[in-house]
């Protein structure tokens, strides 16, 4: 049986999916997860969830966010050469930092 594992680094943060473990039951899953996913990176708490209990909905099932093309909202295609573009560069790097901070990449 497969248990999906979610790790929280610090109290108050989100639990983020970090992998899974094979285990016959919840108790063993918690124990294995502690070693496999809580040993190397800073860990405050782990959740183990039976894979079957995870509900999933994908882009094939539903059009996320409707059918309008919203790529214009992602202002990452401006020219960034030239002195006047420094604000764009800063803003982009802030955005990249934020994405990294959320664990998006």
């Amino acid at each position: 049986m497969i248990w999906e594992v979610f790790r929280q680094e610090q109290a108050g943060e989100y639990h983020t999916h970090c992998g899974n473990v094979h285990a016959p039951d919840r108790e063993m899953a918690k124990q294995f997860a502690a070693v496999q996913h809580g040993r190397r990176k800073p860990t405050n708490s782990l959740w183990v969830v039976p894979r079957d209990e995870v509900g999933e909905i994908t882009g094939d099932d539903v059009a996320f966010g409707g059918t309008t093309d919203k790529s214009y909202r992602w202002a990452t295609t401006y020219r960034t050469t030239g002195a006047d573009a420094s604000e764009v560069v800063e803003s982009e790097s802030e955005q990249a930092d934020a994405e990294q901070g959320r664990g998006d990449d």
């Binding site: 473990v21 094979h22 285990a23 063993m28 124990q31 294995f32 070693v35 496999q36 040993r39």
Partner: peptide, 11 residues
């Protein structure tokens, strides 16, 4: 017997 038990004992 399994990857998980292997890692647990190695730990």
């Amino acid at each position: 017997p399994s990857l998980e038990s292997d890692l647990a004992l190695a730990n």
